[in-house]
Design a protein around this nucleic acid. Structure first.
Lengths: 209, 209
DNA sequence: TCATTTTTGTTGCTTTTGCAACAGTTTTTT
DNA sequence: AAAAAACTGTTGCAAAAGCAACAAAAATGA
């Protein structure tokens, strides 16, 4: 990927120069936004950590997405008439930049600098998002719990460039993220340890293959 | 979504004016491209139908994505070091436009018109793709076969604006797309029929709720 | 610092899903 | 038009995953 694009700098410019955007702060546990009303909202997480969550009628929680600094999310990425109530909750104190997709194509009051590269940058941000979603699909299409776990660990390992890495979730949330039962996941983790595929120490995992 | 953007016209302009792109034709069954080498390739399907496929070591086939006219796909959407061999196969005779992400940010020989709206259009195309991927994740995170089937049918129903719609797959492929066992899926379909939730006639489904 | 809440680890049991296999259809190819 | 290939529908059985429940550990927060 084009690594000479600096997302952070882009976002800083964006934030200070443009009257088309808003910034809000949220404390842990607060609801950042819901995906009910269609307003083509896009959000960029400036600091903190948020989760996109769905509860189904059985009360099963699914973590549809988890976002970290500079990630992009928002209701614009979901089709209008889904009958799902999705909401975004701050996992930590967070700072979020809000705007609407349409507003990007109008000039702002100060006709500010960021417009020059905005759409370029937007497609770059979108591209990152697509890559993340494809990774997620990669996991979810694995046919069994072992496959899902190992795929995810593989991604984490490659991302950290080490065989040892820490899981950015509690195990409870990891299960929700992989869309599997927690106890079944724990059982499978134990099997993976017993069979010598991985080592586990708290939330640190080491791949032994 | 912004519906006044006409993807088709954009693609037509693109195709005729720009020397940065290539068009190739494929007959049914041919491999369109593989996602092995990293070259930031982007493909737009002009006509036909293609599938993005993964086979795992057990020989399980998974349809990672299925693309129709004007859809966008390509290895640029996958991170560099996945150890998966993904390939794109034509399900019907197809026509595909190829380019690389990087090439978009250079001017082409004739400095052609499409550059004006190119990045805008690109982000629009990316946005469509994100919406599709989110729908896919929506399905895949459902905890059981019934949930997956009903979610998918719900999408098809909303897309067609009718309670009756046809499935754009064979049942064999549908199972691969939902990442479930075919016979288990057939069993579940039968249950759904017996319990009065759906009607089924060939590849036409009617929702009764 | 103590009480409360959340998370982890574990297990027996039940339900769901996958696998294998095969016969009958339909579609495609020659 | 016949042969081959792919798809559909079905089933019994085996394996995997989900559920429920609980104790212990850790984290949170008043």
């Amino acid at each position: 990927m084009d690594t000479n694009f600096d997302k952070k700098i882009f976002i800083e410019n964006f934030k200070h120069s443009c009257n088309k955007v808003q910034i809000k702060k949220f404390v842990k546990g607060e609801t950042v936004t819901t995906y009910i009303e269609k307003r083509n909202q896009i959000c960029i997480l400036l600091t903190g950590k948020v989760e996109l969550i769905r509860y189904d009628f059985n009360g099963n929680k699914t973590i549809i997405g988890n976002f970290e600094e500079n990630d992009i999310f928002g209701e614009v990425f979901y089709p209008a008439n889904t009958n799902n109530e999705l909401f975004v909750v701050a996992k930590r104190n967070s700072e979020v930049l809000f705007f609407t997709y349409d507003s990007l194509f109008n000039k702002c009051r100060r006709n500010c600098d960021f417009h020059k590269n905005l759409v370029n940058s937007l497609s770059e941000l979108f591209l990152d998002q697509i890559i993340n979603l494809n990774l997620r699909i990669e996991l979810l299409t694995k046919r069994n719990i072992r496959g899902k776990i190992l795929s995810y660990f593989d991604i984490l390992s490659k991302r950290s460039l080490h065989k040892t890495f820490s899981i950015p979730f509690s195990y409870t949330d990891l299960a929700d993220f992989l869309s599997i039962d927690r106890s079944a996941m724990m059982r499978e983790l134990k099997l993976l340890i017993d069979e010598g595929f991985i080592k586990k120490n708290g939330n640190k995992i080491t791949l032994l293959f």
